[in-house]
Design a protein around this nucleic acid. Sequence first.
DNA 1: TTTAGCACTCAACTAACTAGAGTGCTAACG
DNA 2: CGTTAGCACTCTAGTTAGTTGAGTGCTAAA
Lengths: 344, 344
Amino acid sequence: MLTERQKRILWAICEDYIESAEPVGSRSVSKKNDVGFSAATVRNEMADLEEMGFLEQPHTSAGRIPSQQGYRFYVDHLLTPQIWGDDEIHAIHNLFQKDTTHIEQAIEHTSELLSQLTNYTSVVIGPKLQDHRLRHLQMIPLTEHSAVFIIVTDLGHVNQQRVLLPEGMSISVMERLVNLLNRRLQGISLSKLRLVVERDLADELTRYVAEYGSMIFLLDQMLAPQQENRIYTSGTTKMLDQPEFRDLHKMKLLLDLLDGKNQSIIQLLNSSPSSGVQVKIGNETSIEGANHISLIIASFTLDSESIGAIGVLGPTRMEYAKVIGLMDVISKDISKRLTEFYEK
Amino acid sequence: MLTERQKRILWAICEDYIESAEPVGSRSVSKKNDVGFSAATVRNEMADLEEMGFLEQPHTSAGRIPSQQGYRFYVDHLLTPQIWGDDEIHAIHNLFQKDTTHIEQAIEHTSELLSQLTNYTSVVIGPKLQDHRLRHLQMIPLTEHSAVFIIVTDLGHVNQQRVLLPEGMSISVMERLVNLLNRRLQGISLSKLRLVVERDLADELTRYVAEYGSMIFLLDQMLAPQQENRIYTSGTTKMLDQPEFRDLHKMKLLLDLLDGKNQSIIQLLNSSPSSGVQVKIGNETSIEGANHISLIIASFTLDSESIGAIGVLGPTRMEYAKVIGLMDVISKDISKRLTEFYEK
DNA sequence: TTTAGCACTCAACTAACTAGAGTGCTAACG
DNA sequence: CGTTAGCACTCTAGTTAGTTGAGTGCTAAA
């Protein structure tokens, strides 16, 4: 266990390094007004802290920087989350103003706000489409051989699917088919649609359509796996301002992460606990080669069910106190707004 | 006007520099098998070419590199577009296979393909939503006070709009309203919807709804300006492999360009001529500070009407021959596929 | 236990030097 | 007269050596 003095020193080093991005020497720690010991004393303690794994030294004759474990301790025990003022709170409230026509838009705005206020890159993920429940199906003929098939969910999401119409199946038959599905599939989650059709409706459906084959063909298209939910990122270029990303190699890794094709960030966001702010430091993100990256995540909820997550991506040398405070406010507030939004 | 020999030398310098990214000296030009002159001769010609503005010299005692004007001449008169093999053509055909459920998906795939085959960053822009024509309107009640309002266009695009329902307007009235709009607005382009309603339908509408104010409130929401069409980019990180983007400042400019908030790329894509491949070199892009960037664009068409554009973004030192050849094939082929796709 | 003092280390900067690529000019050549 | 070989000159990039200063670890005194 760390002594009070060691904690104070570790805290001072973290704060200093986060601000300056330069290794912190014993003298500058000693000079900090909250620390009343001489440089020599600090040096001794620093040596101990390094031995315990909380600090590391880029090279002899340089100051110390927090290790991953050091940041961990700082985040868990030493920092006080920043309290945000009314201005920021106000900006959040504005996210769900009258111009918000669908949830995706609000999510995108959230992402922008996050990155603006933190000066880091933000990542936001919305409700998993698969968990939405079916509200309404609609088929709109487009040409002789194709139609647009629309799925509206309980959260107001609209999913479109273009389908090729089977030869020789009349429009009216298809309309009846859709009507039946509409009656019977209400409230079923999208991921289960296909299953339910097969299990409960197979018999009934054959009564509507003579050719089973072409009906299956149609159904498969209509209920095809929905597109994965998009991930919204904002402020990618902000990372370039961080000195740790001067290194092109690290920059490339980061951009690849954000490219969307990479699933690791999405997985991390999805794995966030339904309440509270979670901090993943360096390789705790279990992203390969991301020792220098930290990710702070928080969920937002609708009717106290987690339906998405917001995240801020930055260097391990990140302003944790500031970001954690903000994320806490934003995630809670978004949840509240969302609930209001859907009640109206 | 340039002599045959000057052209040959300019050509050799362009090809060499594009491949090596190093200033080209007189000796290496002279050694190229197609050029039969001594280094000294080449030197003389190079001095002339520089004076005419086709070449520049990073510093004395370095070789020459093509100037913007030099690239322009190379692109316009010297290069032979690369002929692409069956493999690539095949890949294009696969873009519009059975799993293509809507046009956005195909566009996204096109973007990925482009960047894969060229190793540059690709940018693709789809049909301007405002130019689509109305096919069908649909209103789906969500809660007591809100509904989802869906617009399906002739190209099969589905646009959703969440609307707040005016107090005291009954569902059945609204249904009649939507029916009327459906009958009267078929085939009108989205950009004109609002106008037509005001001009031709105002009187008729008042017969349906007593409270004019709340009806306008509803209409405004329904026909609110549609979201801008998204721009699809792919292979952003590929730019990092280009030596010219080692410079962090240039990199940042590029990333900002691709961030989507910046409209200049979109404007450029929209301004592409409806047929043929267009090359914008350096500040011809009229993007501020983008002297080192080139953009190659081509439109794709549906029923011989331009509905979108593909673009490849790279350093001015770009493999023009390769990219131009590819863009030509892809843009034509996509047009063909699109037409087939919508005929079915 | 804490602190002052001091020798030691190491990265970062500077200056001087070197190597090499490439030019421009001149004079000779066919 | 156009073309080419030769040579002096220029300038960058890379190397080495030397200097500076921040910071440490250790020791001995307070």
